[in-house]
C-alpha cells in the first residue's frame, strides 16, 4: 500500500508577496494510480484572511479540516474576533502534537494576513506539528520535490498580487505535471489585506 502520505496524492504551495500571500492546491483525489475525483480541493477557509492547505491521507484531510472548523468556530464564539494566522498556526501545531503517537497523516500549510499588523504570514508543518516558519514559500504533498525546484527557481521577494498569482500558478502547474499523483486542475487563492481572489485553473487533465 505504500506510505499513507502518498495513497491519495495531492500538492499544496504557499508564497509570500508584497502585502499579500498566495496559497494554491491541486484537485486530484486518487486511490494509488486510480483517480477517483478531479474536484477535491485541499484548501480550507479558516476566516476571511486565513487559509489552511492540507495534503496527505484524504480521510485525515477531511477529519483535520473539520476539526479545525470546529476549533476555530469555538475560538470565534469565545473571543468574539477572528483568529490571526500566527495564533492559528500554533493551534494547528498543538492539535497535531496531541496525536504524537498516532498522527494524522497530513502535511498542513497555513497562509494568511495578520489583520492587526497587516503582515503576511505563511508556515508549514510536519504531521506531528513541528512548525516551519518561512519568509518565502512553503510546499507540501506528493509533488513537494518538484515544487521545491519550481519555487526555488521562480520565486522572488516583494511580488504584487498579480505577479504572485502568476508565479504561484506556474510553480504549481509545472510541478504537478511531473507528478503522477497530483494535478487535474488547481485552486489558487491570493489574499490581500481586504480582498481575497480565488481562481480555478484547468491545467492538464491527465
Amino acid at each position: 500500500m505504500g506510505s499513507p502520505f502518498s495513497m491519495n496524492g495531492g500538492a499544496c504551495v504557499a508564497m509570500v508577496g508584497k502585502d499579500c500571500v498566495g496559497i494554491a492546491c491541486d484537485l486530484r483525489l486518487g486511490m494509488q494510480a486510480l483517480t477517483v475525483s478531479n474536484n477535491f480541493p485541499k484548501i480550507f477557509g479558516i476566516n476571511d484572511s486565513v487559509y489552511l492547505g492540507l495534503t496527505g491521507l484524504a480521510t485525515d484531510v477531511a477529519t483535520v479540516s473539520d476539526l479545525f472548523r470546529f476549533k476555530v468556530n469555538m475560538y470565534r464564539l469565545r473571543e468574539e474576533r477572528n483568529i490571526s494566522p500566527d495564533t492559528f498556526a500554533n493551534l494547528v501545531s498543538t492539535s497535531l502534537y496531541e496525536r504524537r503517537f498516532g498522527p494524522y497523516f497530513v502535511s498542513p500549510v497555513v497562509a494568511g494576513i495578520n489583520q492587526t499588523s497587516g503582515k503576511p504570514f505563511i508556515c508549514g508543518f510536519d504531521s506531528i506539528g513541528c512548525i516551519d516558519f518561512a519568509k518565502d514559500f512553503i510546499v507540501s504533498g506528493t509533488a513537494s520535490d518538484q515544487l521545491f525546484g519550481m519555487c526555488e527557481g521562480l520565486y522572488e521577494p516583494d511580488l504584487g498580487p498579480d505577479e504572485l498569482f502568476e508565479t504561484l500558478s506556474q510553480a504549481l502547474l509545472s510541478a504537478v505535471d511531473r507528478d503522477a499523483l497530483s494535478g487535474w486542475g488547481a485552486h489558487v487563492y491570493i489574499i490581500e489585506k481586504d480582498k481575497v481572489t480565488k481562481r480555478l485553473l484547468k491545467g492538464r487533465q491527465d
Binding site: 491519495n8 483525489l29 486511490m31 486510480l34 477517483v36 475525483s37 474536484n39 477535491f40 491521507l57 484524504a58 480521510t59 477531511a62 477529519t63
Partner: peptide, 22 residues
C-alpha cells in the same frame, strides 16, 4: 457520495466500487 473504509469521501457525478471502477 463515494466513501471507502478509511473514511475517504468524495462527492462525484458517477461512482463505482471494486472491479467495476476499472
Amino acid at each position: 457520495h463515494w466513501l471507502d473504509y478509511l473514511g475517504t469521501e468524495a462527492k462525484i457525478p458517477y461512482a463505482a466500487h471494486g472491479y467495476a471502477q476499472y
